[in-house]
């Protein structure tokens, strides 16, 4: 007990403690207070920010995803092709058309493989459009033949002079832009038509297309 008291007395001296209290009266500098408290406030703020930190990357991911979806959707859009065209083999097309298709092929290949149903429906609609064009061309040709017969049989030059438009159409029909070697095969004929369209001869191309449709009617769909 006495040893314990002695130890206690040796480790604690009120006079030394009091002297030390008088000596040690330094205060923390104000700039340290500001620095520490600001750090504490900042860390508390960062904790809240860390809790919602997932919002920013999530927003970025969502934005990028939407952009990708838009780009893919645009890439998958069907190409605008001239209505009423029959399927054409690649070797029958003009060089420019073949080249254009080749450039478009990488973009269209994947969508075509991805969405066969869409392609099928597009083919059906093109077929219907082709049939409508065919009927219209038949009507136009029949109308031309009828007027020509009237001119020949009855009034002669009078009607011929009073109806110049059918005469010019007939001239277009007789003045062929695609020669016989091209019209022998539908593919070469269509290549010729495409070339006419490319050169800006739209009337001639339309007439040749009508004649092509008459000569080679598209097959009936089941």
């Amino acid at each position: 007990m006495s040893d314990k008291r002695n130890n206690r007395d040796e480790t604690v001296d009120p006079r030394v403690s009091a002297a030390y209290r008088e000596l040690a009266d330094e205060r923390t500098p104000g700039h340290l207070d500001h620095a520490v408290l600001n750090a504490a406030r900042g860390a508390a703020g960062r904790k809240w920010a860390r809790a919602v930190a997932w919002l920013r990357p999530a927003a970025w991911v969502a934005t990028i995803g939407v952009c990708l979806a838009i780009v893919i959707e645009i890439a998958l859009l069907p190409e605008q092709e001239p209505a009423g065209l029959a399927p054409v083999s690649e070797d029958a097309l003009p060089a420019t058309a073949t080249k254009r298709r080749e450039t478009a092929a990488p973009q269209a290949a994947e969508p075509a493989a991805a969405r066969p149903a869409q392609k099928l429906s597009r083919g059906v609609s093109e077929e219907r459009q082709g049939r409508a064009d065919e009927a219209e061309a038949l009507n136009r040709i029949q109308d031309l033949d009828t007027r020509e017969a009237v001119v020949k049989d009855e009034t002669g030059p009078f009607l011929l002079q009073s109806a110049p438009a059918p005469a010019s159409a007939r001239d277009l029909a007789t003045e062929r832009y695609c020669d016989e070697s091209q019209t022998a095969d539908p593919n070469t004929w269509l290549a010729c038509i495409l070339e006419l369209e490319r050169q800006g001869l739209l009337d001639a191309a339309r007439l040749e297309r009508d004649l092509l449709t008459l000569a080679f009617p598209p097959p009936e769909l089941p």
Binding site: T28, L32, A40, A44
Partner: peptide, 23 residues
């Protein structure tokens, strides 16, 4: 409390201990 976001609790803690720690 500071761990739960109470900055005022940290200020109390800091003002209680800052001077002895600095000395």
């Amino acid at each position: 409390r500071y761990r739960d976001g109470d900055v005022a609790a940290f200020e109390v803690l800091y003002r209680r201990h800052k001077d002895p720690l600095f000395r």
